[in-house]
Design a binder for these strands. Structure first.
Lengths: 331, 331
DNA sequence: CTGTTAGCGCTTTCAA
DNA sequence: TTGAAAGCGCTAACAG
């Protein structure tokens, strides 16, 4: 391995001068600089970022903790994509750490990123509770921001969308179309996001003077497969409904498959809607009415919060209704 | 920041002993060890991986270079997912670097990962040519493996699937169903993957005694949008065909939209197939016949190659035909 | 403008 | 089994 010392010797200068020539903070005589560049070219020298980072005590990297289970699916793609792109825009590398299957492992992932001395850490939690996250943030020396979870005690360390509000917006649209028998497919058990969406559904129903019918509630687990199973279960119950709202787009697509197999036409026989505005839904036939989650804005916000000084007031983002073909008035 | 020295002092031992207690390579008296652990707990000490890496001259990380343009889409998700999961299985962190929009930027991304002293680097190239990749590998001190590109000169530094063979397999299926007028939607211009799939299409046709009709060739760019546009263009040509093979599933979904809008039914009026076995296609209605690309096996293979010693013979993987509902015999 | 001299926090000989 | 000391490769005062 060729080091800065080799370059220095070859160029007939000191390590410090090579360092200065490379970092450009201090002026180095042109002629000397040329000699150094020449030596670098000859030796094929490549600065050791590790040593540099240690000397500077900073790494130019930001960490992202996500959980395995979220990895597949378009949602993860969008999250990682924007995280990577935005990090690079700030000149930082993105380091991934898997939260695996438990709160402890999510904690370990954070710890790991801290040992790596990431400048900042983003976490899209799955198992850690709000209390646990609060504690972690309290004890953390490095900036942390939590994505998709509201932390009342740490308004500046979280960005999220108001899922209940989004759900109510969606329901308002569905009710306005004339639907009253609306089924709901829940997300995975214990998911705050799922609970908020369900709460919005029930809230909107009650506000419209309709008591939620337990017969119209089926349980899913976010995946398309689970949506398909939920759809079949709902149909098997033989209760009347004119519309199905699924906890996310993936499940909505699964539900659609179940409906189509049962000979139902979308949206003539049954309307269908989801959440997340995934690519899937956009090109599905019929295209899927959904709620757009502003992932890019959220990540952008998160990274700005982490890397830029000062206050960043709004931590709550709004979901936006995307009307498409899968919802029509009931017959 | 609390360092190993703070812990040592508090425990009344030397830095070296703390280090040994932590790394477990050398035996430390139990009683002393307990005191050290105690001190660590009290101080909240967290080893600095940076310093550790520098001292050991290794980082326990593997780098992945992918290009921005590939980021969105389920393909990227699958790639990153398996890369991250497999890296972690080998106890390594995954570091992402964006190849951006040019060969030079892909090169820069590799350089960056090298400066970071990643133990190994995976690259899913978009702009770099085989020659350029060969050169990079020749000059590289750190292990590199190229994904989805065949490098005849570096059979042990590449993993790929035989796209032409896959395409021929797909065509054999289509022809066997009785289709003879089969349209093809190409991938983005200049993409080796796209070219291989096109070559397979033409090859299979000729072998069946059918001269490829330029009227049945339309150009796409991998995205669903481009597939939609290609579909519309094809329909506008008013030439007869009974089947469309798209360069990937995303485009196939776009093509489907164009067909459905034109009042065509799938697969009764026109059969449709793609490549990649994306989630999209699996739950589309009708579900999409496609070629499964063994991403997991490839990444697994790539990481094994990088991290384990010894030979890993096969670098070529086989795509697998997935028959589903979107292909039926012509009327 | 440039060289010298200390570190950054940890690991690892080499002695004891 | 443990401590002292010498690095890992680079940056950053401090002189000159």
């Amino acid at each position: 391995m060729v080091t800065i010392l080799d370059v220095a010797r070859l160029a007939g200068v000191s390590k410090a001068t090579v360092s200065r020539a490379l970092n450009g903070k201090v002026v180095v005589r042109e002629e000397v600089k040329a000699r150094i560049l020449q030596a670098i070219a000859e030796t094929g020298y490549r600065p050791n970022q590790l040593a540099r980072n240690l000397a500077n005590n900073k790494t130019n990297s930001v960490g992202l903790v996500v959980t395995n289970g979220l990895y597949n699916g378009p949602f993860f793609a969008s999250l990682t994509y924007h995280a990577a792109t935005n990090s690079e825009m700030h000149g930082r590398q993105l380091v991934l750490a898997d939260g695996k299957h438990s709160a402890q492992e999510e904690r370990d992932a954070i710890d790991l990123l801290m040992s790596l001395r990431c400048e900042a850490i983003m976490i899209y939690p799955k198992y850690l509770t709000v209390d646990e996250l609060d504690t972690i943030i309290d004890n953390s020396q490095t900036p942390i921001v939590v994505i998709n979870r509201e932390l009342p005690r740490h308004r500046n360390q979280c960005v999220f969308v108001d899922h209940q509000q989004s759900s109510e917006t969606m329901m308002a649209h569905l009710l306005a179309q004339g639907h009253t028998r609306i089924a709901f497919v829940t997300g995975a058990e214990g998911s705050p996001t799922g609970e908020k969406r369900l709460a919005g559904y029930q809230q909107a129903l009650r506000r419209a003077g309709i008591e939620p019918d337990p017969q119209l509630l089926v349980h899913g687990a976010w995946s398309t497969d689970s949506g398909y199973a939920a759809g079949r279960e709902l149909l098997a119950r033989q209760v009347p409904f004119t519309c199905i709202l699924a906890g996310n787009d993936d499940m909505a697509i699964g539900v659609a498959k179940a409906c189509l197999e049962a000979g139902l036409r979308l949206p003539q026989d049954v309307s269908l809607a989801g959440f997340d505005d995934s690519v899937l839904g956009k090109y599905y036939h019929p295209s899927l009415t959904t709620i757009h989650v502003p992932m890019e804005a959220m990540i952008c916000h998160a990274i700005d919060t982490l890397l830029m000084p000062g206050e960043h007031a709004v931590c709550s983002h709004e979901g936006e209704l995307v009307r498409r073909e899968s919802v029509a008035p009931p017959k």
